[in-house]
């Protein structure tokens, strides 16, 4: 029966396409969250596959902290043009200006946590009933317990003790007014799967994932990119290093790794040999043991 074999990437792809189509069928006004990082790029690619030859029947939504890598924004805009996709951008700066959130201060200040408020406001204003995200269960231990279809109450909160059981591929997206869902189509993918799939499908990604020379400085063992958003301590010094990014998030809390990998093959081999998780470069997860769990309960991605 070899002829009915399917490899793991095609099986994951089929599952994700199924989930994305369920969203389009079960919700009135879904959006797909898009950060310009590799996971959201893969998720969007899967969405295009799910509805071809039609266009993707929902908008993408970017929660912009204002602390971006310029390469990511340029990449995002080109991709939207090329595919004719509608993009909604909501700015954390607006939430700050409206006094809804207060900007953190100090050297380690980050807008990462503030994004939650901007996101929930966007969901409410636009009457979004489902926001798809590129979260993966292998990323972090609180995410390991997340459902494909994750119910959020009217305050946008996640209650990990009271999740709906999820059986077979039968997804229950029923909700009351004011509630919404977060759906994670690539739940079952690992970092390695994502890279292999990008390679297999020849998907374009921002060039900062590849090796390049960059001005960086060391903080808490992370290599942070020199930028206007991050105040440096007197003891910290700027160095030029050959680096790349394993994840792309808010520039204030995403560290680079030293790497010579400048092709997808190189990256795949680097990931295979790596002894740390990609979240190891994320400053935001190190704040406490349950940092992600707490943020998720509040309504984070």
């Amino acid at each position: 029966m070899k002829e009915y074999n399917i490899n793991h990437l095609r099986e994951l792809e089929a599952e994700s396409i199924f989930v994305i189509r369920e969203v389009a069928a079960q919700f009135e006004n879904p959006v797909m969250l898009f950060s310009g990082g590799k996971d959201s790029i893969v998720m969007f690619h899967l969405a295009r596959k799910a509805f071809a030859p039609a266009k993707v029947p929902f908008a993408l939504m970017h929660i912009d902290t204002g602390h971006n890598f310029p390469e990511t924004i340029q990449f995002r805009d080109e991709l939207m043009d090329e595919t004719g996709t509608r993009l909604i951008v909501r700015y954390v700066q607006d939430s700050i200006d409206q006094g809804k959130v207060v900007e953190e201060t100090g050297f380690d200040a980050s807008r990462n946590k503030l994004q939650t408020v901007t996101l929930l406001d966007g969901i409410e204003d636009l009457q979004v009933d489902c926001a798809m995200g590129g979260g993966r269960r292998d990323e972090e231990k609180a995410r390991a317990k997340e459902r494909f279809f994750s119910h959020r109450d009217e305050f946008g909160q996640w209650d990990p003790k009271n999740q709906r059981p999820e059986l077979w591929n039968l997804f229950n997206g029923k909700k009351h007014m004011g509630e919404h869902f977060r759906v994670f189509p690539i739940s079952n993918w690992t970092e390695m799967d994502v890279w292999q799939y990008i390679y297999l499908e020849n998907i374009k990604i921002p060039n900062i994932y590849f090796s390049h020379e960059r001005e960086v400085f060391v903080r808490n063992g992370n290599l942070l990119s020199v930028s206007d958003f991050i105040p440096m301590r007197d003891t910290e010094t700027v160095e030029k290093r050959i680096v790349r990014f394993r994840t792309i998030g808010d520039a204030t809390c995403t560290g680079a790794v030293e790497s010579e990998a400048n092709s997808l093959e190189d990256i795949i081999e680097e990931v295979a040999a790596s002894r740390t998780t990609e979240r190891g470069t994320r400053h935001d997860d190190k704040r406490s043991e349950a940092a992600m769990e707490d943020r998720k309960k509040e309504g984070y991605f």
Binding site: N5, I6, N7, L12, Y199, E269
Partner: peptide, 11 residues
Amino acid sequence: DKTSGYLDMEL
């Protein structure tokens, strides 16, 4: 071979 091998696994 290492890279290509990863592309052909079953789930």
